[in-house]
Design a protein around this nucleic acid. Sequence first.
DNA 1: GCCGTTTTCGGCCCGACTGTTTTCAGTCG
Length: 566
Amino acid sequence: MYHVAMTKAQQLSKIFYEFSAWHEMNSVAFKPRAYQIVSESVAALGDEVEAVWRKGGVKGLKELPGVGQATADAIDEFLRTGHIKEYEQLKKKFPVDIWGLSQIEGIGPKHIMELYQHLKVKTVDDLKRVLKSEKIKDLPRWGLKSQEKLSKQLLMMEASSGRQLLGYVLPSANKIVDELSKINGVTRCTYAGSLRRKQETVGDIDLIATSKHPEKIMDAFVKLPQVESILVKGKTKTSVRLKIGIDADLRVVPDEVYGATLQYFTGDKKHNVMLRELALSKGYTLNEYGLFKVRKSSVASDATSPLTRRLKNSPLAKGGRGDLVACKTEEEIYKKLGLDTPPPELRVGGDEIDAARKHKLPKLLPYGSVKGDLQTQTTWSDGANSIEEMAKAAKAHGLSYMAATDHTKSLAFIHGLDEKRLAQQGKEIDGLNKKLKGFTLLKSTECDIHKDGSLDLSDTALAKLDWVGISIHSNFKLSRAEQTKRLIKAMSNKYVDCVFHPTCRLIGKREPIELDMDEIFAAAKKYNVAMEVNCFPERSDLRDIHVRAAIKAGVKLVINTDAHAT
DNA sequence: GCCGTTTTCGGCCCGACTGTTTTCAGTCG
């Protein structure tokens, strides 16, 4: 397993998470959520936090959703000095690895507080030692079962790999949906959550099924061959650990409420909280069973009466929460709230609800829009298939053109092409273009960018190509100024059409190189150079934030697979 | 601590499951 040092954004996210948990431990109202939101915002932005801060300072930070004066000051202090005074004080008062312990499923702030107060547990290792001494079961409100469950969780955590890449989880999820759909009694089945939102990485697989006999579905679900162990099993909600190392949650509901459940479990959490707050302000309440008109008389008694609480637990019982207004489709729920329906990919709890209200949601490119592929590798360098095989596979996927963009000579260890072999490859492509009907192969390259910004192929060689992509494969650690200058110099070459995987990040393995993206996009516009959205799962480069910025700057984008095999 | 086409002050999302309890706190998503 690769170990990567924490980035500044990750450190900040962790700090705010610990502040949040600390307030939770002390039963402080509302602050936990405020800090939690900042923790998540910062994590989602990644190194963009620093870019925002560099450009706009504290004022710029305060523009970020959920970030106010106090948290903006804290971020500013951290980025200026490398630490936050208030956080250091917290650590002195409570020297516990809150974040580390929180990674254990079932351990939250209150438990962390108890474990420290009664057993002096500060770290995950401390917890392992204490577990061996079997003292945990004697804590108030703990018992043998909680102790055993905790031991099991710790073992499972060591075996788990955390979040996984979308492109690699999706096929497994599709297979499970197929198998669940075949179970007798299942009306509809689909995946929701981060998978449906098509996030770069997913932490678990959220599944929804509709049926009149939920218990039967649960019994069948836990017996699927993909299941390694059962974490939670109830009538309508079950969680399992899959053999591929991540969890899958299944919710079974009546078919009539499919839309509400789909909406609820697509999330993300922030989007849903914003939506439920909006619902409240309009006199509704929203849950996974539908949108309900709140009855004024029932609100006051709700919190206290056990009977009302039980009614709430069977929300379909008429009169539990109010009168049902919408539940069949997502669209009718959003419409009742005065909103257009945002595509799942946009439901991130940012500005999409505002845009939905103003009918200004951006139109996403529909799946199936891509007509060609302008980055692929073949056996000429490090690909697994010949140009002809790749071309035929591309055609079979409905594409009408493809560029064979093999690496260049600097990457000698994977047989990068020099000018002579590039010319030979050109002849092969001429031959194939005569042979292939309704499909065009482009002569091209993924030309390496040297440390000084010069290119790996001569201008005379580049001039003969249909499509020139350039990319960085070495010297990832240059300073922001040097790296930006290097890339812009390369982009200024008049034969260059596109920058491939501009930030060079590998999700979970390598941080992006340091670039001033504003300057890069300005140069892209000036030299009419496109930027790539590389869809290799661990790259996804440019990423979401940069794509938005590039579009805003008027820069052309190209979506490629960077496929190394058919 | 944050936020505002009902508010710059007074609000702040919702329900399932578990374990240890006899009515609920804690955790999770």
